[in-house]
């Protein structure tokens, strides 16, 4: 799947299906199980039919309005649970700052993970692990 045509064209994977939705919606719109299903069915149909390595198939889906295109890489300031007071030169970068500690969706998630994994979690986050 891809919503970033030029990036995918540069990487050149064997098969790709393009969805012209804002970032963060590669497999559909929220709370739209019918639309999500239609999207993936179209992608799998394209997958079955693919014969040309590197082709990107446009699934032809439309988001509904184009307002998101004005700032298409905007992160959400509320995603970070750490203070973002010290943003430095990142002021004109609308993405979220690149913290190098685990960024939990909620404090409850943080407490649960710290209970389970102990104190060394910042280092363990740099390798693959199962739970």
């Amino acid at each position: 799947m891809t919503s970033a045509w030029t990036i995918t064209a540069a990487v050149n994977p064997p098969r790709a299906a393009f969805v012209d939705y804002p970032l963060g919606h590669t497999t559909g719109q929220a709370h739209d199980p019918v639309g999500q299903r239609t999207l993936l069915e179209a992608a799998f149909t394209a997958f079955e039919a693919a014969t040309v390595p590197g082709a990107i198939v446009d699934l032809g889906l439309q988001w509904g309005d184009d307002a998101w295109r004005a700032d298409p890489m905007r992160g959400d300031s509320r995603t970070a649970t750490t203070s973002q007071a010290d943003r430095g030169t990142a002021r004109s970068d609308s993405r979220t700052e690149r913290f190098d500690t685990p960024q939990y969706q909620s404090e409850e998630d943080r407490r649960l993970a710290e209970q389970r994994h102990g104190e060394e979690i910042a280092c363990r986050a740099c390798v693959g692990f199962d739970d």
Partner: peptide, 26 residues
């Protein structure tokens, strides 16, 4: 959790970036 996209919809319905319910229905 991510720095490069607006995660509000993903946090509301994870299937927009991780289509697990969609795949299970298929």
């Amino acid at each position: 959790t991510h720095f490069a996209y607006d995660t509000r919809d993903a946090r509301s319905d994870i299937n927009v970036v991780f289509p697990i319910d969609t795949l299970r229905s298929l």
